[in-house]
């Protein structure tokens, strides 16, 4: 046992992680699905403008890579800005809620209203109001879609401090600020990260929905624009290719945030602890 780091489980190598059932099982399902799709199109003889074969989608993706990738980057920008805004404002709002019960009581319902109002219904308004700043409008829409999980989860976390630890801090005559920094925020971290994982996907969805609503206008056009235009022009393979990109981006965001969460919690939180073999 080493002196400095006793009892840490060995980290698994990259290859071991890739060959694990967690990766292989869903991959197998995916391959089966693609094979079935391909067979179905071939047997039924559907034309590509109704349902293209997977190979054609891939070919289209490669052929149009530069154009599609540029669009994806535009969407990614909106997503990232909205996501960061959701993360930061979410924590800020939650902290504000816990400062005073009255703030939570009076504002929380409005957070819920903002969350439950369909984004497609309010996005046109926002786009009109912020006519000169399309980017800002899109970010705002994506933020509305993304901020609630962070607020709800972090608020729950800030209020879920262990009673004994709370007593301990009372005993040490701590001020509310110290309790926030050293007790409540760390206690809320796993909840916050859980909220982030949901918000990551939601900010992407929010960005795509907002782009749809904003329509084809605007000089810099995101991936939703590509999907729209392709469907107008009956370029269905291209539409599928764009869809594939959005989905992949969503998966990447989720994997990235899960990895971040595991990294931050791996030493102490049950959710991130690798079982001993």
């Amino acid at each position: 046992m080493s002196r400095s780091r006793p009892m840490f489980p060995a980290r698994r190598s990259l290859i071991q992680r890739i060959v694990s059932p967690d990766v292989l099982a869903p991959l197998g399902v995916g391959v089966l699905f693609l094979l079935a799709w391909d067979a179905f199109v071939q047997i039924s003889g559907l034309p590509p403008y109704l349902l293209p074969r997977p190979g054609l989608v891939l070919q289209t993706l490669i052929d149009n890579w530069n154009e599609l990738f540029a669009s994806l980057m535009v969407t990614l920008q909106i997503t990232v800005v909205a996501f960061l805004a959701a993360a930061i404002s979410g924590v800020g709002i939650s902290v504000l809620f816990t400062v005073n019960k009255w703030i939570e009581r009076s504002l929380f319902p409005y957070a819920v209203i903002l969350q439950t109002t369909p984004l497609v219904a309010i996005a046109p308004l926002i786009v009109i109001w912020l006519k000169e700043n399309t980017f800002g409008a899109l970010v705002l829409c994506a933020w509305i879609a993304a901020f609630f999980p962070v607020v709800a989860n972090t608020t729950l976390g800030l209020n879920s401090v262990d009673r004994n630890l709370n007593n301990l801090f009372k005993l040490y005559n701590t001020n509310p600020w110290q309790r926030l920094i050293y007790l409540r925020l760390p206690s809320a971290l796993p909840y916050f990260l859980g909220g982030l994982r949901i918000s990551g996907g939601l900010s992407l969805i929010g960005a795509v929905v907002a782009e749809f609503v904003a329509g084809t206008g605007g000089a810099k056009s995101g991936i939703a624009y590509q999907i729209l235009i392709s469907s107008y022009n009956l370029q269905i393979p291209k539409m599928f290719a764009a869809l594939l990109m959005v989905t992949s981006l969503g998966i990447l965001i989720f994997i990235g945030l899960s990895a971040l969460s595991d990294r931050l919690l791996r030493d102490w939180h049950e959710s991130a602890i690798k079982p001993e073999s």
């Binding site: 004994n164 630890l165 102490w268």
Partner: peptide, 8 residues
């Protein structure tokens, strides 16, 4: 009664 350590 329980150790009440900060898990993090």
């Amino acid at each position: 009664q329980d150790a009440a350590l900060l898990p993090w």
